[in-house]
Amino acid sequence: MEALLKLLSDNVAGYGSLASPLQYLLPMVLASLCCIALVALFPIVAVYAERKVAAHMQDRLGPMRVGGWHGWAQTIADGIKLLLKEDIIPSEADRVLFKLAPLVVFAGGFASLVVLPFGASVIVSDLNIGVLYVVAISSLGVVGIIMAGWASNNKYALFGGMRAAAQIVSYEIPAVMAILTVVIPVGSLSTQEIVRAQEGGWLGIGNWFIFKPVTAVAFLVYYLASLAEVNRTPFDIPEAESELVAGYHTEYSGMRFAFFMLAEYVNMFVVSAIGATLFLGGWNSPVFGGPVAFMLKSVALVFVQFWLRWTLPRLRVDQLMYVSWKVLLPASFVLVILAGALAVR
């Protein structure tokens, strides 16, 4: 945003003579418009990509009709369909919470975009506690999910909401621990600082944290935990369709349901982008740096999420808790201690 402000004041004549709140407001609005565009477009592309990847992994073709070439307009058509659908609120539902829940879930994902370092100067706001901010703000989604489950007044939805709460809270700990192993050597919570710490090295990738012994394992821990945090298979028990209909969004229809979908895909992108920032060198790249490299890395991680989803069956609830509390958590503790030992050495 600072870069945008500078760009505006350098290139637009008379920009400096505007009232100073306006000077700051304009780049803010522009930056958030960019984020909204990303948030609106990414799920459209990602849903299409996921359906295609899923189909081809199962030797099918996936959507092939809408829009002509390989059904490229399928998601757009689905979005329009969802917009036009009847908006149903169950008569016994808690109306206020029911309406608010999708927005809270969505806001949690959307607000995380603020600190994603797309490029050296392409970042909405380089908070000095960026990583902490993401961890905190993305937990907002859980509140929304519980709200949705509770407000629907439906036992499946409530089960889904409770499972989501249990799952996300338990997986948050290993995820944060894994993030800590990166924060300790860098000594900063700012996402830009972390990316800068990974510059250079052998072939331009040697300093990426994924190529260092302790943080490489931490990446694995983080990735697994992040899968659980965004409710993706094999950790998608909050919306296990074979047991819970659709989990917490069972009662939602139309655009409110679309918001949950949107939030799910935005969250997928956010956790992948954080993974790319912390472990894969962010916008650093030996060939071309900047937003393109960053997006490529994030999208690659999102692809692995698809890949895992269509490979693995869903875990049982107790297995899920086992993985978190008995495997990931001890592992992440050991990693943090090792990272600390390496840092003081």
Binding site: V53, A55, H56, M57, Q58, D59, R60, L61, W307, W310, T311
Partner: peptide, 11 residues
Amino acid sequence: TWKHLFTRACT
């Protein structure tokens, strides 16, 4: 699954 990603679809 990676192998199947590149097998011809039978649809």
